[in-house]
């Protein structure tokens, strides 16, 4: 039994009366009341401590993540290190007990994820990151939903970055391959013309060749000047393209440095990169 009686469905799984698909799983964050200011960057999650739910155990401990324009920042670490959690915290999907999130100098700690999107953050979730039943073009259109101006230029830019999407523009996104779906997902996030792009494991479940191609695309996006914050499972390849790397262990910053430094660091290599 959960605490909230309205969320107690008694294990019912009758699909003829209750739609199991597509529902919301996002719980918006509330402010922390314990602000922190240790680093300065364009986007910074500063000394974040917190976990899921109102009184769930802390998953992050004093964790700091930051990214500046023109940079690719990568969060790596072993399984269960809190990589995705750290990114969700920056995006406002976690209850922080301590810390601040600042975008371009503005404190956004108490904003909901939707409000953060409106402020200029683009986020690509790890799973369920496209509208599978809608065409590629409709996905991009939905990405631009909050824009009141003409977004056709941006769509052309996205098609320029991901030419395959232009060919498949009228195909339902759910019918595309894994790599193509990820391109749709990134393209959708780019449609708002975000000031910063956050990617949660963009290469999860794709083949190595597709992964390389995706990384190339991400570098290309970064060249347009958008700062990119990314969580990656494939630590070595990710650090190779990273300007900045964060190694998290059990929700704490274990190592921080440029991608090259971390790759060269003996200890990091031993413990995370397999020698």
């Amino acid at each position: 039994m959960t605490g909230n009686p309205y969320q107690d469905d008694r294990g019912n799984k009758d699909a003829t009366i209750a739609n199991p698909k597509g529902g919301s799983e996002m719980t918006p964050a509330v402010g922390t009341g314990k602000e922190m200011n240790t680093t300065d960057a364009f986007l910074v999650g500063d000394s974040m401590t917190g976990g899921y739910g109102k009184d769930g155990p802390d998953i992050l401990h004093d964790c700091t993540i930051a990214v500046n324009p023109g940079e690719i920042a990568v969060i790596v670490g072993p399984n269960g290190a809190g990589k995705s959690t750290g990114m969700k915290a920056v995006f406002g999907m976690l209850n922080l007990r301590q810390g601040s999130v600042r975008l371009d100098g503005e404190d956004i700690t108490s904003l909901s994820p939707q409000a953060r999107v409106a402020k200029g953050m683009g986020f690509v979730p790890q799973v369920n990151n496209i509208f599978t039943s809608m065409t590629v073009e409709e996905n991009l259109e939905m990405g631009a939903f909050i824009r009141k101006d003409d977004f056709l230029d941006t769509m052309e830019q996205v098609y320029g970055l991901f030419p395959i999407l232009k060919d498949k523009r009228n195909q339902p996104a759910g019918e595309l391959s894994g790599g193509q779906r990820q391109q749709v997902a990134v393209g959708r996030a780019l449609m708002t013309q975000p000031k910063v792009l956050m990617l949660d494991e963009p290469t999860a479940g794709v083949s190595p060749i597709v992964m390389d191609e995706l990384f190339d695309r991400i570098i290309e996006v970064s060249r347009t000047g958008i700062p990119i914050l990314m969580v990656e499972q494939n630590a070595r390849q990710a650090l190779e393209i990273a300007d900045k790397g964060y190694v998290l262990v059990q929700g704490r910053n274990a190592f921080t440095g440029t991608g090259k430094d971390l790759l060269a660091d003996e200890e990091v290599r031993k413990s995370f990169l397999g020698g």
Partner: peptide, 22 residues
Amino acid sequence: TRTGKSMRAYSDNEDLALLSGI
């Protein structure tokens, strides 16, 4: 229509629709 598409998007994936500003 834009509204109609936003309804389909919401039905398909509520969280992503929220993140798209719907």
